[in-house]
């Protein structure tokens, strides 16, 4: 698919090396990154292939791809695959997410 992931050679993205970089960094910066990475590791192969995963990430619309952190892109890619493969429905995931966030579940479209 021809989209923003195919970015080699683009100009204008700025500096590579982060301020204060000393050659090392933690493997994960947040607990959610750790859990997302683990979820990917235990579902790839079992429920989808490498290529399906890559394509799912590449199907993110360009603005989301360019602005969301790496492991959040993984969340979109894995959540999409689990739904498209019928392992969970959009409705039940939306409901589960809302239940876990009650009482502010009215953010969920359709439940307002």
């Amino acid at each position: 698919m021809n989209s923003v992931h195919d970015c080699g050679g683009f100009d204008g993205f700025g500096r590579v090396v982060p301020a204060g970089y000393d050659g090392s960094e933690p493997v994960f910066k947040h607990e959610w990154e750790r859990r997302m990475c683990a979820l990917f590791m235990v579902t790839i192969g079992a429920h989808y292939s490498d290529d399906e995963f890559r394509q799912s990430r590449e199907r993110l619309e360009p603005v989301t791809y360019l602005t969301r952190p790496y492991y959040e892109q993984w969340w979109f890619a894995v959540a999409r695959l689990m739904m498209e493969k019928g392992l969970m429905t959009p409705e039940e995931f939306g409901r589960h997410l809302a239940a876990g966030r009650a009482p502010s579940a009215d953010i969920l479209a359709g439940d307002a």
Binding site: W32, V42, T64, F76, A79, M82, L87, E91, H96, R101
Partner: peptide
Amino acid sequence: LLMSIADIEISARVKALEELLTQKGLV
């Protein structure tokens, strides 16, 4: 669905995914 929940904090979305897949016996 993905668009409707895209701005909910990512930690909550990851937690919900882990919980639901665990409940279903998928992980």
